[in-house]
Design a protein around this nucleic acid. Sequence first.
RNA 1: CGGGGAGUGGCGCAGUCUGGUAGCGCACCCGGCUGGGGGCCGGGCGGUCGCAGGUUCAAAUCCUGUCUCCCCGACCA
Length: 470
Amino acid sequence: MAKPPVVSDPQEDFPQWYQDVLAKAELAESGPARGTMVIRPYGYALWERIQEEVNTRIKRAGAENVYFPLLIPESYIHREAEHVEGFSPELAVVTVAGGKELAEPLVIRPTSETVFGEHMARWVSSYRDLPLRLNQWANVVRWELRPRLFLRTSEFLWQEGHTAHVDRADAAAYAKQIHLDVYHDFFANVLAIPVFLGRKTAAERFAGAINTFTCEGVMRDRKALQLATSHELGQNFAKAFDIAYTDPEGKVRHAWTTSWGSSTRMVGGLIMAHGDERGLRVPPRVAPIQTVVVVVRDEEGAGERAGELVERLTALGVRAKLDDATHVGFGRRATDWELKGVPVRIDVGPRDLKEGNVTLGRRDEEQSRTVAIDEVAATIPEILEQIQHDMLAEATRFRESSLVDAATVEEAAEAGGSGVARIPWAQLGVDGERRLLDQGVSVRCLQREDGSLPESDDETGLVAILARAY
RNA sequence: CGGGGAGUGGCGCAGUCUGGUAGCGCACCCGGCUGGGGGCCGGGCGGUCGCAGGUUCAAAUCCUGUCUCCCCGACCA
């Protein structure tokens, strides 16, 4: 009856636990080229759900999807000084094609500000063309020194938004809107991950940005993970690529641009924020399979009744799946669904069926219970919502328990080394930031006392959120 | 680039110090029993021990060279 442990203890050895979950829940494995990743069907199903939810929110925020090329002329990258400096070391470059040395090397996009800039410049000529709000789903390549599956792979999948606006205020407002209405909303309400919202310090900012907003999640090992960022690019790229428009007074002005992105790293974040000693736990709203109906043994019409149950659940809008692979032992299948983190499991077998019952178990609870087969389907939507709610509440409690208010830089170093520390930014300062970085503790973001997004780094009363990060 | 470690059936490992017929677990194949939490019993397939050279009657094991991979750090969504 006991549920056997199937992955290593997350308390003991978190990296090992993470590897185990990736392998045993069949999420992903390393690809042939260094730092690349093969995403397996179940891992990709999670990604597809994430994509769907993020994409819906992006469209709601008024951006349209487009597709830009993978290969970028090297000269593009060089047009924005900070941008080149930031990305040069991690570029993969194509120098030979069609059997010949290329006149100009092509870089594999590490991000697409430059190509977007080049084309946005052609599409914008009047203030009436603005704002121009574009997004693309694509793969990018950054030759990282130390890859980790999902968290930092050389090639990864992401969504990158690129927009152009008439002035600074409009660009800033949009970056903020995306940050709150797309990213923050998605993390809180779908992934059930409470995030720290804030601005990056100058040291941590995106190459070429004048401001970077970030969402920082806290993982089960109390390290921080940057889950999404939104950048105000000022006029840096607009000037480099000549994105200019004529205003109502007939004056030609450079636009103000933004960019924002979230990646397959979110899958890693999902695993590390919610996983436990039995594997992955997936919040119902993002779960590709919300309820699995397991045929224990196909006797007493269990197979048929289970099939009917799946149909009823599907009709109720539940993403349900039938597991009638009775040639595989029950224990094996139960463990596999648990590893994959399916929120609800219903076992249909001859023993319970004689009484007209089935067994219902929540992935986030130990005990399962016996319920009438005729009534179980109708209760599932509400149970799923309850699980969604409970998982966010639990993650929020965990985050609060990881957070320590530090009075001194020394205290902050101590607390940030093993959890998350909060200290007034005025007290830490750029010098303190540099000192902590030597100890592996970085400023994850600057935020207001109440946790909201500051308008600028110079606001008084800002606090710095400190932690070790992935 | 700095610091550690590992290369042995498909996967994970032991054996190396102290040379002497290549082993274990998982997976796989066959048969049977099982079946409400990774089943049990029996039988079987599969490896010239990363590569090259050397020492020796004899090398996974000792020596020399070489290649590859992993982990920690620097870089980062």
